[in-house]
Amino acid sequence: MRGFDETLLDEADETVRVRFVVNGRKVACEVAPRETLVDCLRDKLELTGTHAGCEMGACGACLVQVDGRAVHSCLMFAVQADGARIDTIEGLTDSGAIADLQAEFHRRNALQCGFCTPSMLINAYELLSQVAQPSREQIRDALSGNYCRCTGYEAIVDAIDAVAKARSAGGAR
């Protein structure tokens, strides 16, 4: 890798080319360094399932997986993700990885307006990949950074709890 070149300092407004693998597909984008990953996903790649709420890390609406871990896409600039693997709610939906969670959310009215739902699902997906049988306390803890202004959370916890139990009963997934 090259060392630091001072002419870079005068190019703050110029776009740079970044490449990542989004939902299994290689993509390249032109972004300004100050463009957040959530803006890049929504505006450049038209993946609008990732939501932008507070844009400062507080509401949790913007979760995506970067290299397999849930992160806030408003707390990352797209340039930082150059070379990374990114999975959004669209990709997780298409692959069927969260189909049971989605069905259970639907069944139990664990969403109303849906603004928080993609991130709730991503968090639940990560939790269940780490802890097969989480307690309700652990589920609440995992969702502690995700605001929901509609449901009162109870139905969301119910849905995740039910999926955890169903997955365990049905053997390893």
Binding site: M1, L8, L9, A12, A32, P33, R34, M56, V79, D82
Partner: peptide
């Protein structure tokens, strides 16, 4: 504002860089 001002970005490979 919830959008950063413009800046340049440099990815360092070593501590010295």
């Amino acid at each position: 504002a919830v959008k950063a001002r413009a800046f340049s970005y440099f990815r360092a490979a070593t501590i010295d860089q």
